[in-house]
Design a protein around this nucleic acid. Sequence first.
DNA 1: CCAGTATCCCTTTTT
DNA 2: GGGATACTGG
Length: 657
Amino acid sequence: MKEMINSAVRKFSIPYEKDLNSSQFEAVIHTKGPLLVIAGAGSGKTRTLTYRVARLVEEGISPGSILLLTFTRKAAQEMLRRAAGLLDNRCENISGGTFHSFANNILRKYSRQIGLGSGFNIIDRYDSEALIGLIRKEMLSTSRQSSFPRNHTLSTIFSKALNKVLTIEDVICNDYPHFADDLDTIIAINKAYKVRKTEHYYLDYDDLLVCFKALMEEHPDLRHRISSSYEHIMVDEYQDTNQMQADILTLLASANKNIMVVGDDSQSIYAFRGANFINIMRFPELFPGARTITLEENYRSDQPILDLTNIIIERASEKYSKTLFTRRKGGVKPLLVCTSGENSQSKFIIEKIRELNQYGIPLNEIAVLFRAGYHSFDLEIELTRSDIPFKKVGGFKFVESAHIKDVLAHLKVLVNSKDRLSWQRILLLVDRIGRQTANKIFDAISSEKSGYTGLLTAKIKKQTSENLSGLKDLFGKIDSGVMSVYEMGDKVVDYYLPLLREQFDDHPKRAKDLEHLLSIMERYDSLKEFLTDMTLEPPNTSIDDSLSDNSGGDDLLVLSTIHSAKGLEWHTVFIIWALDGRFPSSHSINNPEELEEELRLMYVAATRARKSLYFTYPKEVYDRSTGMVLKRPSRFLDSINSGILGKHSFGSFNYFY
DNA sequence: CCAGTATCCCTTTTT
DNA sequence: GGGATACTGG
C-alpha cells in the first residue's frame, strides 16, 4: 500500500525524458500491458531496453520478477551491466538468458514433477545426429542406406517440424518433396529417436523448448506459478523467434500480460532454423490491445550509409515499412570494390586497415564481415603474415572441434555413466576397439547399476582389455577423490594428450585449445553446470577474449560471420565476398524466401557501419559446386547507381601472364 | 572384428 | 578440400 502511494509521486533518479527521444521514452514508460517495439537498425534498441529495465526497477518491481530473454547470454549480461551503471546493482539480479537456457533452468527446477526423474543431459547437434545415425543404420537395409536422407538432413527435418509446430509430413512436402517416398521410414526413425532420447535421459535443443511448453500446458498449477512469478517479460530480437517460442511466450505471459517484445522484421536472419518474422506481425493479434511503437531515428550511421541500406531493404517484401533517417550530416559514400582475385581482396583489406590505423582508427573499431565462416581463410593467412592481430567470431566453434569433443566426452560420462554417445566416442579412441567392441563394453557398463565397473567385466579379447588399462586408471583416479572441476579436466587431458599427438598433425595447436578449455573449467564449481554451459552457451571464438585480454590488449580487428555480428557496430565495416553466388549463396537463388533472407542478411551487415562501408568481391571465381564462373557482384548491389554506391577496382588485372 | 584405403557426398548461418 | 561411409585385407 505504502509502495503504491510512493510510486505515484516518486521522483525518478534517471532523467528518462531527457536521455531518450520521444518514441524511446514512450516505450520505456509503457509498463502495463503488451507492447511491440519495431526498432530499426541503430535506433537505440539496446538503450531503450536498458532504460526500461532501470525504470521498472525504479518503479519498485522486484528485479527477480523481471524476465529478459535475449539471443545470447552475452547480450543479456551486457544490458544488465549497463542498466546497473545507469541505476544501481539491483539491475544485475534480473532473470534472463536465452530461451534455451531459461527453459533449462525451469526444467531442472521442476524435473521431478514432469517425470524427468533426477535430471537430464543436454545433447548438442552432433550427438543428436549421431543418435539418429545409430537408428538409421538399424532400421535400413544396406542397399537403402545411400539413397536415404543423411543424418544431418533427418535432424534438420525433425527440428524444423518442432520449431515451426508442424508435422514431419508438412516439412517433407514443403521443403523436401524428393523424400516423399521415404516418409513412413522417416517418421518411424523420428519415433525411435524420441524413444531413445527418453531412455537415455537426453534432451536435445528442441526438447528443451518442447518440454518447457509441455510443462506449462499440461500443468496449469505450474504454469500459474511460473507465469505469475514474472511480472514483466521483455524479449529482444523478437523477429528471430519461432512458432514454438511464441507459444511459450504466450504461456509465460498468461498471468500478467506485461510483455514487451522488440525486434526488426528487416533483420530477421534465422528462418533457416525455424524463425518466423511473421511472429512480429502477429503480435498484436496474439496480445489484443498491444501498443506498437516504431523507432526510426538512426543514431549509428552517416546518411550516405543509410541511403544505401534503405535502398537495399526496399526490395524486400516485408510488411512493417520504415525508413531510417539520421540528423547527422556529411559522411562518405559506401564503396563497391572489385579486386583481381581472392588474395587481392585480402590485400585490399590490409592496405585499407593500415591506412585507417594511420588516421587513428583503432583495430577494434574495424570489422570484416562475411556470409560463411570459411570465407575468411585467405584473409586470416594474410593478416597473420602482416602482423595484424584479429579475433574471429562465428563459423566453426571451439567446442565443435574433434579434440574438444573428445575431452568433453570423458567428462560427460562422469556425470552420466550411461551416456552411450560419449562412451562410443571414448572407446573408439582406444587402440583395437571398433564399433562392435565398443558396443559390447557399453552393454557391460549399462548393465551395472552405476559407475564404470563394466569396463572391467566386459568380455573382450585380452589384448584389447590391456589397451583399456589407461582408461581404467583414469576413471579409477577421478572417481576416487573429491576433485575440483579443473582437476578432473586436468586428469582427462593428461590421459588424452598422447592420443591427441597420435591422431593429429597439428597437435601443438590443439593442445593449446585444451589448455584453454582447462582455464574455462577453472571458473566452475559444478561439472554438470560446466557441461551444460558448453552445450548451451559455448564460447564462440577460437580464442576466448574474456581471458586472453591480458596478452596483447584487446585492440583486435574483428572477423565475423554476419550472423554473429548482429547488434554490433564499428567505425568501418568491410563486407567481403559480395559476389553473386557467394552472397547471396547459390543455394538460395532458386527459393524466393531464402533469397529474401539473404537480402536481409546483407542489410544487417551493411547497417553495422557507422562511418565507412566497403564491399569487396573478386572479379572471377570458379565455383566447384555449381561448376559456374562467378563474376557478377552481389545482385543486391549490382544495379545501385554510383551516386549512392561508388565503384572501384583494386589489384592488377592482367589477363596475360 | 579392426584398421586402412577407396569412394562419394556436400559444402551457410546457430541455440 | 574434408568428412562420413563402404569395401577389403589382415
